[in-house]
Simulated assay, not measured.
Amino acid sequence: MKIAFPTKTVNGGAVVDSHFGHCEYFTVVTIDDATRCEVARVRMDAPEGCGCKSNVAELLAADGVSVMLAGNMGQGAVDRLAGVGVQVIRGCDGGIDDILLRWLAGEVEDNAEICAHHDEDGHGCHHSHEPVSLEPLA
């Protein structure tokens, strides 16, 4: 299984970027399905204009990514990733290693928050209170 994290570097450490479309790069971690241990970690540079209008979802899926552990993203990105078979878990915050360990322990759940862009004011996040249905990966 491969897990992707939208990543930025803060004080020399890799942390989940709070917004998928603005990340510096993606950290892609390969997990051995039998042992649930990390076996590989690579950096994938984020394509120019990395949001839902880019081909990043298809690139990640082609690389075998099946889960995205992210800070937040817009509905377009969620839909695009889901459309290529990548399950999105939003609401992750902090260092990649910590989030990975918590996810492997079953302690990370999707927070169902959707980020929206609007007008010239730039970026604003709007929290959805509607339940989000995530299909388990086969």
Rank of each mutant, 00 (worst) to 15 (best):
V132F: 00
A57E: 06
E48M: 07
I31S: 09
I89G: 03
G12Q: 08
A82H: 14
S128G: 12
I31K: 10
P131E: 04
G95F: 03
C50D: 00
F20E: 02
P131L: 00
E24Y: 02
R43F: 03
S18I: 13
V29Q: 02
D63R: 12
V88W: 01
G85N: 05
T9F: 03
Q75I: 13
A57R: 06
S18G: 13
S54I: 08
N55F: 03
A116S: 11
G49A: 07
L69N: 01
V29R: 02
M1N: 09
P47K: 03
I99S: 05
G94S: 10
E38H: 03
V15N: 02
N11M: 07
N11G: 08
H126A: 11
F26C: 08
N72P: 01
V88I: 06
G64S: 01
A62F: 02
R90D: 03
T30E: 15
F5S: 05
R90Q: 09
V132P: 00
V65Q: 07
V132S: 01
A116N: 10
A4C: 14
S66G: 15
F5Y: 10
Q87S: 11
R90E: 02
D32P: 12
R102C: 11
P136G: 08
G49C: 05
I96K: 03
E48L: 06
